Simulated assay, not measured.
Amino acid sequence: MSVDLDQLTGADSWAGVRAVVAGFGVAGFASTDNLNHLGAEVVALDVRRDPELEEKAELLGVLGADVRLGDGVADVLPEGIDLLVVSPGWRPDAPLVAQAHERGVPVWGEVELAWRLRHPDRLAPWLVVTGERGRGTAVRMLDAILRADGRRSVAAGNVGLSLVEVVMDPEPYDVIAVDVSSQQLHHTRSMRAESAAVMGLGHDMGAGHPGWHRSEQEWLADTAKVYHHVEKACVYDDADERTRRMVEEADVVEGARAIGTTFAMPAVGMVGLVEEIVADRAFIEQRTTSAAELCTVDDLASQEPEFVAAALVAAALARAHGVSRTAVRDGLRGFGRD
């Protein structure tokens, strides 16, 4: 039976699809559970073996999934597979991934799978942040701002809930704040964020995953995927030439804007600092001649540079989504003070 994965969504039956999920952590469990629920034949693999994983494996085994744990289970890709879903821990040169490429089997990460599983009637926009430092804080701040504006929002990806779990929720969200790594973006090709940001690159190539990317060029290329087909705003760090170049080279939807963030006085099209004021000079009608106050640095729970940078990114993404200045202030004031 030939399976056209490109035609399937979370509203369809996945019966006839044979999928392998490599990695049985939070994302792997959600991927296995939901693909199994949709009718796919799922084999989940993880070289780790501990009581928590074994308990989850037993649960999904009762529901019909085939979960294999322990040494050697991931050495050989099973025959007749239509799809390989990998966690970020699986490098591009891992034997299982290499075997999939040799056989022409699609390799997706959780981000790609979640995007494909969206229900056609529940297509909540994604506001996506990547980078090496501060992205988790920015995404949680963004979620707080969106909630302050009355949106049903959720933080997902590397913070909050699994993306697959979020898109399969029968109660639709208004908007999803997404934290993704360059490792996750490596296996992502379909995602089209409403708006996206790259922040905190520094010089730590794939921080936390040393050796994952084969070169700085590949790391930056994977990171830049977050801007692919962005609809509204590409938010970048004005102090980092690499992020500006990513935006300049991005293939975006016509009309999408480049929005810079800066610790300095913002130019037109930027969100930045006017002395101690977080100022919007990108999303107001009078931006050619003035800026609008969003909040003050004293409103933030911390004045550490990484925290302030996250606030600028969260504010820019929220404003691009149409959130009020008041909600930006209220969301940022309340964040981190619990």
Results as ranks from 00 to 15, higher is better:
Gly64Leu: 01
Ala196Phe: 04
Val43Arg: 15
Gly336Arg: 10
His101Val: 08
Met199Arg: 00
Gly72Asn: 10
His37Cys: 13
Arg245Met: 13
Ala44Pro: 01
Leu185Gly: 03
Ala282Phe: 08
Ser181Lys: 07
Gly260Gln: 03
Ala22Asp: 04
Pro78Glu: 14
Arg337Val: 13
Thr289Tyr: 12
Asp280Pro: 00
Val297Pro: 00
Glu55Arg: 11
Ala309Ile: 00
Ser13Pro: 01
Val235Arg: 06
Gly200Thr: 00
Val175Phe: 03
Thr223Ile: 06
Leu312Cys: 04
Ser31Glu: 15
Gly23Asp: 00
His228Thr: 12
Pro210Arg: 03
Val97Gly: 06
Leu161Gln: 11
Arg68Ala: 10
Gly70Asp: 09
Leu312Glu: 00
Gly160Ala: 10
Glu171Asp: 14
Phe29Glu: 15
Gly25Trp: 11
Val86Arg: 12
Pro78Cys: 11
Pro51Glu: 15
Trp108Asn: 01
Val230Tyr: 04
Ala196Val: 00
Val139Gln: 04
Val62Leu: 11
Arg122Phe: 08
Gly72Met: 00
Arg68Trp: 08
Met191Asn: 05
Val253Gly: 06
Leu59Asn: 13
Val308Glu: 10
Ile284Trp: 08
Gly255Leu: 07
Met168Leu: 07
Leu185Gln: 08
Leu96Ser: 05
Gln184Ala: 15
Val139Gly: 02
Val328Asp: 06
Val67Trp: 00
Asp204Ser: 14
Val159Leu: 07
Val230His: 04
Val129Asn: 01
Ala44Glu: 13
